[in-house]
């Protein structure tokens, strides 16, 4: 039997806490893919995944928010059933909805930067509603711009066709998600976290 000696390189408590939160947030975005709501004016039921992306940026900040979404993409690529409809596998990262998926870490970073104005986390009570809504709209724009571009490139659609199929039908639901996100950030239930 062979033995190996190696010095133990402990992970600091702060890094452990951030890593655990990022990983659990990644799993939560995956769990949100299973929760769908029928939204008026939207032809397809809407899942909470994008809400998870917004909240990763707001609650984890512009460094650990994108890290959480990076973990989410890696886990999905390796087969965790975290993508829309409980699917997983590397194929999704080069498939029709690849643009949306790749945009998630960027969008979380944009939302985090807009809300916290730097890498350090600010107290959310000091963040005004206009700043919050502005950040969330910027995040939505990033997701749909990259998503629609990906859709057009992968499926060979013209820009207008891609916007009709990949953005117009989903936008009413995004307004509901932004309203929900503002309510969540202002919620007393999260004040202690």
């Amino acid at each position: 039997m062979s033995t190996a000696t190696e010095s133990v390189d402990l992970v600091g408590h702060e890094s452990t806490r951030n890593l655990a939160r990022a990983a659990l947030f990644a799993a939560l975005v995956g769990a949100f893919a299973y929760v769908s709501f029928p939204v008026p004016l939207s032809p397809a039921p809407v899942t909470l995944q994008v809400l998870g992306v917004f909240l990763a940026g707001v609650l984890l900040g512009p460094v650990w928010g994108p890290a959480a979404l990076g973990i989410y993409l890696a886990a999905g690529a390796l087969g965790a059933p975290v993508f829309s409809g409980g699917a997983g596998g590397l194929g999704h990262l080069v498939g029709a909805t690849a643009g949306y998926l790749w945009s998630y870490p960027v969008a979380a970073g944009v939302v985090g930067l807009a809300v916290h104005r730097g890498p350090a986390l600010r107290d959310l009570d000091g963040v005004g509603v206009p700043t919050l809504v502005g950040g969330l709209i910027a995040g939505t724009v990033v997701i749909y711009a990259v998503g629609v571009t990906g859709l057009a490139l992968v499926l060979g659609l013209a820009p207008v066709e891609a916007v009709v199929q990949g953005a117009l039908v989903f936008l009413p639901a995004e307004a509901a998600k932004i309203a929900a996100a503002v309510g969540i950030v202002r919620s007393d239930a999260l004040a202690a976290t």
Binding site: V11, H13, T16, R17, L19, A20, R21, A23, L24, F25, A27, L28, A31, F32, V35, F37, P38, V39, P40, L48, L51, G52, L55, L59, A176, K177, A179, A180, G183, I184, S187, A189, L190, T193
Partner: peptide, 28 residues
């Protein structure tokens, strides 16, 4: 709809962060 989304998401996040912090303490 946005009210229901809010309730589900708040509960999900509060539990996820609670689990993450307990996990971090256990790992340390």
């Amino acid at each position: 709809v946005h009210h229901r989304m809010r309730i589900v998401a708040v509960a999900g996040i509060a539990r996820a962060i609670g689990r993450a912090d307990r996990l971090a303490t256990a790992l340390t």
